[in-house]
Computed example of a mutant assay.
Amino acid sequence: MAGEIPPAQPPPAGPDPVPHPYLLMWRWRRNPLRRSSDRLRAWISLGILLAVLVAAPAAMFGVGDSAYRHYRSTAEHEERTRDHRPAVLTHDAPRHPEPGSDEAKETRYPVPVRFTGPDGVSRTGTTEVEPGLPADSTVLVWVDDEGRITEPPLSAEQICSRTMGWAILAFLGVVITGLAAHAATGLVLYRRNLAQWDAAWANTAPRWSRLP
């Protein structure tokens, strides 16, 4: 029928347009649609960004330095309290299904061993050895000051790796905290805007619904 308004058609499917940089800064520009909460959110976002830019590197270096000192001290303590001692296998080590393969070279099996502790007393324990070693073979094990088989002292590579891990975690923690703070403030301001809109509509709607 002539004069009818056709129904609205959905926009054609396609990728979302990338906002122009000028549009991304709309909260900073004066315009009649900008609310006080928009300006507040812009300042809060800027403050959070600056805080993250300062705090993230500081946290990374601070935590990294503390972690390095801790692990360096731990390694020095382990070097003083741990000793490399010979131990004798009391059982044959299992044989690898593929002797001579690259996997066999990397594989280690736990086997009972007998060794002499720091106090001179014969002890037994379990350590990982190469496949196929026969009983009575001698291997070297790390023993602590209480006579227990343990891991070797931390190496320089392990200290560096663990230090970097804690430093990265600290950096990411600050960034994630900043993102969470930004999202939380945005949610609070959004709910505040909704409440203001509801109040404004409750005041305006009765005047619109009055009959002439």
Rank of each mutant, 00 (worst) to 15 (best):
E4Y: 08
P11C: 06
P11M: 14
P17V: 05
V18W: 01
V18H: 02
P21E: 01
Y22F: 14
L23E: 05
L24M: 12
M25G: 00
W26N: 08
R27Y: 00
W28H: 01
R30K: 15
N31R: 12
L33Y: 12
S37T: 09
D38V: 09
W43F: 13
I48H: 12
G62I: 03
G64Y: 09
D65C: 10
Y68F: 15
T74G: 01
A75S: 10
E79S: 13
H91T: 12
H91V: 15
D92T: 06
A93W: 06
P94F: 12
H96E: 04
G100V: 06
S101N: 05
D102Y: 06
A104G: 01
Y109G: 00
T116S: 09
T116D: 01
G117F: 11
G120D: 00
V121Y: 07
G125A: 08
P131S: 02
P131T: 06
P134R: 15
D136Q: 14
L140K: 12
D144G: 05
R148G: 04
I149N: 02
P152D: 09
I159T: 04
I159P: 01
M164F: 08
W166P: 00
I168S: 05
I168D: 00
I176A: 08
L179H: 12
A184K: 15
T185Q: 08
Y190M: 12
R191Q: 02
R191E: 02
N193M: 00
Q196A: 00
A202L: 12
N203Q: 11
N203W: 14
N203S: 11
T204S: 10
L211T: 11
P212Q: 15
